[in-house]
């Protein structure tokens, strides 16, 4: 065999074998990976809407949204607890992915959790702290949330920025404002 044939044969054989081995392993791990994703989603919905038992997927136009109930979907006495909506915000270093819960009448934020972020540890990463998140709880959705440096007035729909991380604070707030405005139109229709 001359050298170029040997080169082609050895590369082809190794690549095909590697491809086959990986396809085989992917099949083994796939179910477990999918289960993890589902579990992570259910856990995060439970965190933003305590007592959540079932959810109805109402995702539309690339917005991931759920209607969350306190009893299984088949149960007629179930109560509608609120919406859980996944919102992406442009952070200081990459996307911040949030899950927000909203009251059934879409008037107020219940709370939110950060699913993914790559903000600076020790500064912007405080967007995941309870202290920062609790500022958003029960803020109105009828007007945009504003970010203030220093003491904020909750009645005026304001939150105070994390000191040293104004960009991250604003990123979360803008993400919520824009994402929830879009979700509101999709869920309630544009006339509301």
């Amino acid at each position: 065999m001359n050298i170029s044939t040997r080169m082609i044969v050895s590369l082809t054989v190794v690549t095909v074998l590697a491809g086959l081995a990986l396809a085989f392993c992917y099949e083994i791990f796939k179910d477990k990976i999918d289960q993890n994703a589902v579990k992570a989603l259910n856990d995060s919905i439970n965190e933003v809407i305590p007592g959540a038992v079932s959810k109805e997927d109402i995702s539309k136009d690339d917005m991931v949204m759920y209607k969350v109930y306190d009893k299984p979907l088949s149960d007629d006495t179930k109560n509608f607890l609120g919406y859980a909506i996944v919102v992406n915000a442009g952070g200081y270093q990459g996307t911040i992915k949030l899950i927000v819960s909203v009251t059934p009448d879409f008037s107020k934020i219940i709370t939110f959790r950060v699913l993914e972020h790559s903000e600076t540890p020790g500064l912007g990463a405080y967007i995941t702290s309870t202290g920062f998140i609790s500022q958003f709880e029960s803020l109105s959705l009828n007007q945009p949330i504003k970010v203030k440096k220093g003491v904020a007035n909750k009645d005026a729909n304001e939150i105070s920025a994390i000191s040293g991380a104004t960009i991250s604070s604003k990123a979360v707030t803008n993400g919520l404002n824009e994402g929830l405005a879009k979700a509101k139109i999709l869920i309630l229709g544009s006339n509301q």
């Binding site: 050895s10 190794v14 392993c25 990976i33």
Partner: peptide, 29 residues
């Protein structure tokens, strides 16, 4: 069995396959 000229390419494919395997395993467990 590997001709010297393509060894880097072959090694890369082998390493990449094992890395992907490790990545899938970590994601799953």
């Amino acid at each position: 069995l590997i001709p010297n000229e393509v060894r880097i390419g072959v090694y890369t494919v082998i390493i990449a396959a094992f890395v992907t395997l490790a990545d899938l395993f970590l994601k799953a467990y």
